[in-house]
Design a protein around this nucleic acid. Structure first.
Lengths: 198, 198
DNA sequence: TCATTACGCAACGTTGCGTAGCGTAATGAT
DNA sequence: ATCATTACGCTACGCAACGTTGCGTAATGA
């Protein structure tokens, strides 16, 4: 029956944070700076988000959009497009920093763990769809564990770009795609089937 | 012509840090706590290591040992053993936390980037050797890019254990090994050769 | 023995987090 | 239009951690 929390203040806080994330990186996001840039009081920040970390996660969640999954007709074509896009987004220093920051925070606190998990669902959508299409086409085993396949596909790029910070050239990407597509192809040399979905 | 820096003090600092790393985790390593536990003055810590971060990296470097590479006769057997060992070491909360911490620090500062790089050379040795043996046996293409292959092998586990923090069961490990070994096997469906070593 | 230099200690300045108290003003309800 | 409610802005504070300074003491190589 009285004054509701101001969406105006909330939006100002979030866009100021977004601006810092994009320009300086998550390392420069702190309550005082966000308050200064947004013109909103620091106390209001805490009233709305509780902690500075929660503010960052809120901004990330708001900005993670589901990309349209490519449909090139082959698994390799789809994955090539998905990974090309990924490298575009994940290459800037600020993105790597933010990703690693989220992983670190997700270890610290179960709440952040859940927030981080949610932030990864959307970006994984296209890969899941590409895999499902490939299974439907019979291009890969219909019993392929989609979750494991995800890690096999994305793992190498995470290892290279995020952990090692090495550059991934077009030829590297080609080689990796060759390998991962082959990894998913049919029954392996040991003759064992891929494990069923868990 | 005078008093040299005390290796005793240095060792006390490092073992106190090691102890905190193993029990509480890197998040609990701070100058005051290390000083308290070691009985060495905080100022001495800074005189020896410059920063708290450098102390942690020094301890890590000291404790990263080169494991004896397994030799089972097949690439799959070698990798299975290597990854089994890896999961043993990387599973505890403190290890994940430390790894992510190092990645984060390596982004912040080029000095840390170099320290982190050095910390990863030793652990990668066995995988490199396994790959070279497989190439020598003709099990995989002799032109395989060892560096890229490394990422294809380790990437999925990093993605699962470090990023997602999901459990990797024996059956998961089997499936992943099936996939990665297949990824490295011979020439791919596109008919293109693996890229030469860069 | 003596000059040199590391060590221990206590105090300080800085940054960032999150909180407390208070006056002001916006907003929904009547 | 008035009024009760509650968010907002502000200033100040407490806390933790980093790294620094200055000084007296004592260990160690020459």
């Amino acid at each position: 029956m009285a004054r509701p929390p101001s969406t105006v203040a909330r939006n100002k806080l979030m866009s100021a944070t977004m601006e810092i994330l994009a320009t300086e990186g998550v390392g420069s996001v702190n309550a005082e700076e966000v308050a200064r840039r947004s013109g909103v009081a620091k106390t209001t920040l805490y009233r709305h988000f509780g902690t500075t970390d929660a503010l960052v996660f809120a901004v990330v969640e708001q900005n993670v959009a589901a990309a349209e999954p490519p449909d090139t007709g082959t698994l390799r074509g789809d994955l090539a497009e998905i990974q090309r896009r990924y490298l575009e987004v994940a290459s800037p220093r600020q993105s790597r920093e933010l990703f690693v920051w989220m992983v670190a925070k997700s270890i610290e606190d179960p709440i952040n763990r859940e927030l981080f998990r949610r932030a990864r669902v959307q970006p994984r959508g296209p890969t899941v769809i590409a895999l499902q299409r490939a299974m439907a086409r019979g291009e890969i085993d219909a019993n392929t564990d989609v979750d494991l396949a995800m890690h096999v596909i994305q793992g190498p790029l995470i290892s290279m770009r995020i952990v090692d910070n090495s550059d991934v050239g077009d030829d590297d990407l080609d080689t990796i795609l060759d390998m991962t597509v082959r990894a998913l192809g049919a029954v392996g040399p040991t003759g064992r089937q891929a494990a069923p979905t868990r």
